[in-house]
């Protein structure tokens, strides 16, 4: 009887070993993943818990990674929000011709994946006489501006009441004091709840690691903005905070050939954005949702 039992135990032990071996074989591709990461990265703390030294170390590591994986020397800096600044953006729909140079500039500036031609900006071709996006399209392929159409670029609206940050289970995305909503690429778990929550299709997910040739990489990078994102995390427009917090203008604005875009500090009474808000009849997208965008649209005529 007891011999029978021990024979069974042996058989079971053999079965368990076989099963474990099969399992190890099945999940072997994970080794490839662990090679691309390390303990230090695994244990990286949330952005807001990093001290100055931690940040320096993190940045050094990220720069090193970029050199190793992409072969490009880059400088990553942590641009902090300035006091008494609230950024606002306005777009003149009467002037926009739908050329999509803003989307291209974003693609270059923010080190987007080249294969998917990713960009934080999507331009809708809308029918004159209707604000119904249902009747618009992003897939137009003809000379612009076309007769009877107007064009509406849409990017992150940097909402004052952002649904995306509310839903994040791990506080990997938040609104900074200057109104910009940022993502901690080292903390995001990639659940994509924010992508579902955003009413403006402003967020993008890195379905695989971005591919960019070394010579095309923009080396001026912000820790919370355009540095090359890792695989499996969410990213979004930051109003080019690595530029705008440094006194420059967003790349999409500089690329615009018609001057449709107006950017500035809404707390500065002499800024152009304040003039637009005071003198133009501006509107925001999907106002009824209560998200209170900081991105305004207006018509001249």
């Amino acid at each position: 009887m007891s011999e029978d039992i021990s024979r069974r135990r042996m058989l079971k032990a053999a079965g368990a070993t076989l099963g474990a071996a099969a399992f190890a074989r099945a999940v072997a591709p994970l080794a490839q993943f662990t090679e691309s990461t390390n303990m230090e990265e695994f244990l990286t703390q949330h952005y807001r818990e990093l001290g100055p030294e931690d940040k320096t170390r993190l940045i050094a590591r990220l720069e090193e990674d970029t050199l190793r994986k992409y072969g490009a020397e880059v400088t990553i800096r942590d641009f902090l929000p300035q006091e008494n600044v609230q950024f606002g953006y306005a777009l003149n729909l009467s002037v926009c011709i739908g050329c999509r140079r803003c989307a291209d500039a974003c693609h270059q500036e923010n080190n987007h994946d080249r294969r998917t031609n990713q960009s934080y900006i999507r331009v809708l071709e809308m029918e004159q006489g209707s604000m119904d996006m249902e009747r618009g399209t992003m897939h137009y392929d003809h000379a612009v501006p076309a007769e009877g159409k107007f064009y509406m670029p849409v990017q992150c609206q940097q909402c004052e009441n952002p649904p995306c940050t509310h839903v994040c289970p791990v506080e990997a995305t938040w609104q900074e004091s200057d109104g910009i909503v940022v993502v901690d690429y080292n903390w995001c778990i990639g659940c994509r709840y924010c992508e579902a929550a955003c009413p403006y299709h402003a967020r993008r997910f890195n379905w695989s690691a971005p591919e960019i040739p070394a010579e095309e990489i923009n080396p001026d990078q912000g820790l919370l903005s355009n540095r090359i994102r890792p695989q499996g995390v969410v990213e979004k427009c930051t109003f080019c905070l690595h530029r705008t917090r440094d006194g420059r203008l967003p790349a999409c604005l500089e690329a615009c050939p018609t001057g449709a875009r107006v950017f500035g500090n809404m707390l500065d009474p002499d800024s152009e954005i304040r003039w637009v808000l005071a003198n133009k009849r501006v509107f925001v997208l999907k106002e009824e949702l209560g998200t209170r965008p900081r991105f305004y649209y207006f018509f001249d005529t």
Binding site: H166, V170, I189, G232
Partner: peptide
């Protein structure tokens, strides 16, 4: 469904950063 299952610990209350009660997740 997670893009970064290796960061699962970020979801653990006390160890990670748990956005409770705001996030339904």
């Amino acid at each position: 469904d997670l893009g970064r299952p290796d960061r699962f610990w970020h979801l653990l209350p006390g160890i990670g950063r748990f956005n409770w009660p705001m996030s339904m997740l």
